[in-house]
């Protein structure tokens, strides 16, 4: 199995884009995050669905006590999500600096190890410094199933 077999080619996120546009790009490609590039095209960070939800919609106190939450809770943060205000905000304030990358010649086990190390479900494939696409656990699992003719 080669990483080029499982890569998902995508565009990148750039400064000034809205969270809504970034969400659309993620949803279109079925990935949980995308690289954030500066004007020169260099990857300087990443946009993550999880991080924006965590920063904007889920308070720490809810996360800490998530196991106790009832089904009838309602709070202003949920309204914020429903109203869609968040989607109009710029992505610039929601970029994570640490980026996990890998090259096409790396084995799949290395890709999985890096995802584990970064506590992430995806990483970015770069060839000679140029962005190729996203590697996800889902795509690796998908290819495994196909390889063993279980899908």
């Amino acid at each position: 199995m080669k990483l080029m077999d499982v890569v998902i080619p995508t565009g990148v996120i750039r400064s000034g884009m809205s969270i809504g546009e970034a969400y659309r790009a993620c949803v279109t490609h079925n990935v949980a995050g995308l690289p954030f590039c500066d004007a020169t095209g260099a990857i300087v960070g990443r946009f993550s669905l999880r991080y924006t939800f965590r920063k904007h919609c889920i308070p720490n106190d809810m996360v800490d006590n998530a196991h106790m939450l009832g089904d009838t809770i309602a709070c202003e943060d949920a309204l914020e999500v429903a109203s869609g205000n968040m989607l109009n905000l710029s992505v610039d304030d929601y970029i994570i600096e640490n980026v996990a990358t890998i090259t096409p010649t790396s084995p799949v086990v290395k890709a999985l190890s890096i995802m584990e190390k970064f506590n992430s479900s995806y990483l970015f494939l770069l060839e000679n410094g140029h962005y190729i696409g996203v590697i996800t656990r889902m795509r690796i699992a998908n290819l495994m199933l196909k390889h063993h003719k279980l899908l």
Binding site: P59, N60, D61, M62, D64, N65, I73, C75, E76
Partner: peptide, 11 residues
């Protein structure tokens, strides 16, 4: 944190 959550739920 649990105090904040209780306050949040009670608004």
């Amino acid at each position: 944190p649990i105090t904040v959550l209780i306050a949040r739920i009670l608004e």
